[in-house]
Amino acid sequence: MLFFSYSDTYKLITRVNNLNRGGITMESWNIIFTEKQKVEVQKEAFDPALGQTEILCAAIRSLISTGTELQCLRGVFDPNTNWSDWVKYPFQPGYCMVAEVLETGSEVKGVQKGDRVFVAKSHNQFFKIDAQYAYPLPKDVSVEQGVWCSLATTTQLGVRRAELQLGETVGVIGLGLLGQLVTQYLYLSGVKEIYAIDPADSRLELVKKRPGIHLLAMDAGKAKEEIKHKTNSRMLDVIFDITGHPSVLAQATQLVKPLGRVILLGDTATPSAQGMGSNVVSNSVSILGIHSLMDYKEWNHPEMTKLFLSYITQGRMDIKPLITHRYSPLEAVEVYDSLVQNRSSAMGVLFDWTAIKS
């Protein structure tokens, strides 16, 4: 066995077989959706030999993107959508990972052995990746803060797409992982009031109580009268639909004033069931989509990641209360089953890869 050192307090043991000069084979525990609604944790061998610009990494923590990953597991997609093109079984879920760099290729620059890096990588114990896709974490950012970088850039894109102005009144439908981050960004953006909408009290309780934030424990269809009352019939300037549920868009368009904006940050897997509502044309409502793989104007993903981490280190954003569960990756079958049964019972669910001792 070879032992690879980790930061400060722990070591991770990995098996390295066939230590002959002709090649090295490493074994990695990987989480796989083998088919619709079926999760397995499999140990697989791979060749760790590096290309010139690649790095070899050992996972430390990974975050389950509950909305996206459960949709991938459910496997219900309209044809000719991003979902149907992307999800092919067997499918490796996940894209929120902090890992330690074990080795680097001969031409890698900016990343060194021992660095902690964020990578948009699936739930794998060991893996290779081109160094250009690894973001070294600053020393004052913890591993459990770093795993949020993908979701933080996705939500930052949504807030940028809205092109908010000081004093606007904004709503957020769906207070899962993305909704929680959007709400924090909105508060930093100088909006006058925020209406956080979700029927699950457990999610509303995770929104930090601040002046100007209104918590509505209801679904979007029931929020119209409450918002109408609280805004003296003016309604909202902007609403974010982060649910990915096809029925919510039409409900969201009812919550904004004439010339209001609806930001679609949740990409439904069944757009054939999605309607835009009866008042979009008559009220000149804008429906603005945004996808996580895009940049926005001069803001690219590394710059948005840097900004998010600066907010974290300054204490202006806080994800610690959003982490509700930690598990060994070997418990993945039970973890996903629990989320399928009751997704609202959890928020930030982490896999601790250091829990695997060999």
Rank of each mutant, 00 (worst) to 15 (best):
R74Q: 11
L307Q: 07
T169Q: 15
K357Y: 13
E103S: 13
A134K: 10
S292Q: 09
G67H: 05
Q314H: 14
E100G: 12
W148P: 04
T270D: 09
S284W: 03
L322C: 09
I263P: 01
S62F: 00
E69H: 02
W353F: 15
D267C: 12
T253I: 08
D352W: 12
V98I: 12
D237Q: 15
N18V: 13
A346Y: 03
N18T: 07
F240H: 05
S286I: 02
G146T: 03
K230W: 09
R15V: 08
V143G: 01
Y336K: 06
F127S: 11
I129H: 11
T354G: 02
V191E: 09
I239P: 01
D337F: 02
R161M: 03
T9F: 15
L19F: 14
P136N: 04
D47L: 11
S247R: 14
I312D: 00
A58R: 05
T14K: 06
I242P: 00
F77T: 04
D85K: 11
V76L: 10
Q251L: 14
S62V: 00
H301G: 03
E100T: 15
W29R: 05
L288Q: 13
A252T: 02
A59N: 15
V256K: 01
V117I: 07
S65M: 08
E100V: 09
Q274L: 13
E163Q: 14
Y95N: 07
P258G: 07
E54G: 04
S150Q: 09
L188I: 12
T253E: 11
R74K: 14
V87K: 00
P302W: 03
S122P: 01
Y311C: 07
T183A: 13
Q52G: 08
Q251H: 05
